[in-house]
Computed example of a mutant assay.
Amino acid sequence: MSRPQEPHRQFFPFGNPFRSISPKGSNFSSKLWAILNDFERNLAERLRKLHPSGKDDVLSLSWMILAMELLCETHSDVKNLIKELELPVTDWNEKWIDVYLDISVKLLDVCNVVSSELSHLNQSNLMLRCITHNLDSADSKRLTRARASLDEWRLNISTTNSRIKNCCVILDSLVESLDLPKVKNSAKGKVLMHALYGVKVQTVFVCSVFASAFLGSPKLFDLKIAATYSWGQTFSSLQSDVNSEIRSIYTHGKFTPLKELEAIDQCVANLRQMIPENPEVEEVQPLKNVISELGGKAEKLSEGVHLLSKEVDNFFQIVLAGRDALLSNLRKV
């Protein structure tokens, strides 16, 4: 499943062009400063929570669930920030609207791709349940079928969903559009663009990790964040540690980078070796412990995929609601 690594991608090597709309030196009211500072403080805290405590955290379902939860919170914060700014849609620059709508439709596409991949994992898990059922039976024919099914499972799980490649194209376009429209005469507009930059950076990072988990090769970005962002150093540290570990995982050529799936694959490999080509009924008993272990790991994967699917759906609904609200307001203008 592993493929040659892509070269490290460096963005904004000469400094972030977004620096030009930094609020420093701008004529901001105390209320606007408070709104922006609250948003950035919350963003920095979420990035800190995502920092892995160890190597096993990276590309684990538990980390991915947390990442999606925190991403949902940030996108909800943007919705609240827009309300707090009391910036009616009639005052929105046409470019701001285009940026917001463009981001939202791309994120909805990403959600659909991730949901499709999680559905693929669920289908593979159902296959494992059938395999363990056959292995539990004292029947040599079923053992033979189970042996062949283990090979089928490995082939199925290593097949890359073509839609994931689509997700990579979307991520590339999101990175290319990180340089948001410049704002000259609107303090509220500057706060809005400042917040949208933060949410886009977090979104690109999280989605790139998800793509790396499912793609079969690392899909990572090395984003350079200007010092004018209070959360920049926290993000850079997080990005460096997570990207380094993912690249290390692929360097070692593992069957799959997803931790829970890798654990299942090890059990499958052990079972595959223990079942002879022409198994006898009495050979079932020595397999019991490994079968039980496989069942437990498959159940853990199933629970993790279920929880992650719920968070992805929640994210989809948050993005969709924000998009619908903007479009609704535009119709009233």
Rank of each mutant, 00 (worst) to 15 (best):
V201R: 07
V201W: 03
V201Y: 01
V201N: 04
Q202D: 05
T203G: 08
T203K: 08
V204R: 01
V204Q: 06
F205I: 13
F205H: 14
C207V: 10
S208H: 11
S208Y: 08
S208D: 08
V209S: 01
F210D: 09
F210R: 02
A211T: 11
S212W: 10
S212P: 13
S212C: 12
A213V: 03
A213W: 03
F214H: 05
L215C: 10
L215A: 09
G216R: 08
S217A: 13
S217D: 09
P218M: 07
K219M: 12
L220Y: 05
F221D: 11
D222M: 08
K224D: 09
A226D: 15
A227P: 00
A227L: 01
T228H: 10
Y229T: 00
S230T: 08
W231Q: 02
W231S: 05
G232L: 11
Q233T: 14
Q233N: 10
T234R: 02
T234K: 03
S236I: 06
S236Q: 14
S237R: 14
S237E: 12
S237F: 11
S237M: 10
S237V: 11
L238G: 03
S240V: 02
S240T: 05
D241V: 15
V242I: 15
V242D: 06
N243I: 04
S244H: 12
S244C: 05
S244T: 12
E245H: 03
E245D: 01
I246M: 09
I246C: 05
R247T: 00
R247M: 05
